[in-house]
Simulated assay, not measured.
Amino acid sequence: MKAQDIMVSNVICVDMDERVPEVKNLLQQHGFHHLPVTENDRLVGIISDRDILRLVSPFIDSVSEQARDIDTLNRAAHQIMTRQPIRVKADTPVTEILTWLKKVDISCVPVVDEEDHVIGIITWRDLVNHAKF
């Protein structure tokens, strides 16, 4: 089995300059946990919901909110993304993807073509859904 056999191919990506509120909204609206970040349609990073949780002040929309808390929302995707994410090609064997997920402690890998355009994404959930026990 290869990456192309289990990847989700309708991938929503965000531009490097997209602001945190829009990234957060996309994650919540679609129930995603990861968003690839692109520049000129090429993969340059990935943002997870955990990255957003670490960044955004817990005081937003509370009585304790201050200007510095609101500033956390003004950051761009390129400021919070993981740069140079591990990526795979469509013909990468699933066993290799599993090895990467375990070795590097990540929960998804983008699938790219020869020009680094995102053509899919594989999460640990996709692997579990396709597992044969």
Rank of each mutant, 00 (worst) to 15 (best):
D105R: 06
I121W: 01
Q66P: 02
D116V: 03
D49S: 09
I106V: 14
T38C: 13
M16V: 14
Q79E: 15
K132R: 10
D91S: 13
C13F: 04
S48Q: 03
A90D: 15
V44W: 10
I106Y: 10
V37Y: 00
L26A: 00
K89Y: 15
V11E: 04
I97V: 15
P36S: 06
R19V: 05
A67T: 13
E96K: 11
A90W: 14
A77D: 01
G45V: 00
N129V: 04
S48I: 03
L26W: 01
L26D: 01
A90Q: 15
N40C: 11
V94C: 02
I119K: 02
V63N: 08
I122Q: 02
E115A: 10
V44Y: 11
A76N: 12
I106M: 04
D41I: 01
I12R: 09
V94Y: 03
V14E: 00
K89N: 13
D5F: 06
I52K: 10
D71L: 08
D49Y: 00
R19Q: 13
L101G: 02
A131W: 07
N25R: 14
K2R: 13
S9T: 12
I70M: 10
L43W: 04
H117G: 06
A77Y: 02
N74A: 07
E18K: 10
S107V: 05
D51C: 06
L53T: 08
S9G: 08
G31S: 05
I52H: 06
L53D: 04
T95R: 13
P93Y: 13
R42Y: 05
E96R: 09
Q28P: 02
I121V: 10
A3M: 09
V23M: 02
L26G: 00
V14L: 01
L35R: 00
I52G: 09
D105C: 01
V8M: 07
R68S: 15
V23C: 02
A131P: 02
N40K: 15
S64Y: 14
R75Y: 15
F32W: 07
N74V: 03
C108M: 03
D105L: 01
H33N: 07
A131I: 07
A131Y: 12
S62M: 08
I121E: 00
H117R: 11
F133W: 07
A131F: 09
H78M: 10
L26Y: 04
F59R: 15
A76Q: 15
T82A: 02
D15I: 03
L98K: 13
I70L: 14
M16Q: 12
D5N: 11
T95M: 08
A90N: 12
L26Q: 02
E114N: 11
I122D: 01
E39V: 04
S57C: 07
I119P: 02
T95Q: 10
R75E: 15
T123V: 03
E114A: 12
R50S: 06
G31C: 08
P93E: 13
F59Q: 14
